[in-house]
Design a protein around this nucleic acid. Sequence first.
DNA 1: CTGATCATGTAATTCGTTACATGATTCC
DNA 2: GGAATCATGTAACGAATTACATGATCAG
Lengths: 188, 188
Amino acid sequence: MGELGKTSYVVLGMLRLGRRTGYEIKSLVDVSTRFFWTASYGQIYPELRRLEKLGLVRGRRDDSDGRRRRSYELTAEGGRALDDWLTSDEPLHIELRNEGMLKLFFSEPLSARERAELWRRMGAAHAEKRDQLEEIHPAAVASAEKDGHTMPLQVLDFGIAFADFVAGWCERMERETAEPLGAAGGRS
Amino acid sequence: MGELGKTSYVVLGMLRLGRRTGYEIKSLVDVSTRFFWTASYGQIYPELRRLEKLGLVRGRRDDSDGRRRRSYELTAEGGRALDDWLTSDEPLHIELRNEGMLKLFFSEPLSARERAELWRRMGAAHAEKRDQLEEIHPAAVASAEKDGHTMPLQVLDFGIAFADFVAGWCERMERETAEPLGAAGGRS
DNA sequence: CTGATCATGTAATTCGTTACATGATTCC
DNA sequence: GGAATCATGTAACGAATTACATGATCAG
């Protein structure tokens, strides 16, 4: 009875890039949208079956190179559903859960050292994410030049800038927290 | 059987600020941690009962001013559980779901106008969040000066800077997408 | 031949939201 | 008197993760 959820659109969107298996969709998600939207096998495989029943994708056995598998392609109706979502003006689902911020909020009773450590860990987590994204950046540039698809690159650039901003902020706060903070405007 | 989840710590953390009812905890969450961690009545009330059974909080009827209600306070053990969490070095749960980014990722087939509109809406959402946070900023400053609690203010400052950064980025991308983008470096 | 990767799925569980149900009190 | 807010809870549902189960193929 359920209509389409966000996961449905992840699947439809990935299938617009070409015929794919559930396994391939999951791999794509892991190297592209994972940083702002995830999906697990436990969602993807049932979702593909569901979308097929709805006529939005068409699956077929695809044992070409000896591997037993099932690949899917977008139907015309599936493409329309995807476009409807892309251009719909319903409020965007934006959600953030950050345990580091939560801890910091409650960290008043901790020592300055412990609070600095919290900022440090928050910063380290985001610096690591930034570095991971930067690693795949060259591949994204190459891919953008090859097929002219610039959006994945734009989104990646945003992800890098975003992670870098947070990392930088946390590092500044860490220093500020760790320093005794001389009363008069002392500079490091 | 479940150990403590993040929601448990939200409740414990709020109770460290003083004796509170479930209703008050929810109100506090809504004006403070909501932007990086939410909690609903459907979680808070059962959680309070559960924490009481675990001996981490102590509840009592508190019908002082005619209102039928039940307030809770942190036990010594509850305080210890909270501190253990605050100083534990398990990886921080950090999660981001952003439907705007997801749409942009798949928006290659759209027109430039439609893509610009997506950036605009992302930017507007974050600008609105920034403005909301800025509205409560003076109250946070006053409160920080009164009781010396600076962490809520630090977290709020981060939230504002963060939302502002995202909003600014999106606005730039919107302009860049909408403009025909003359081959030679034309300036607006 | 052995471990990594490819490949597909289900079941159980957890986490969280939303809707519902109820009723008192306070403010206008 | 009526609306807003205070106040507590439950039930149903939905979204997503994790663990489990299975087996083939490929690279070393």
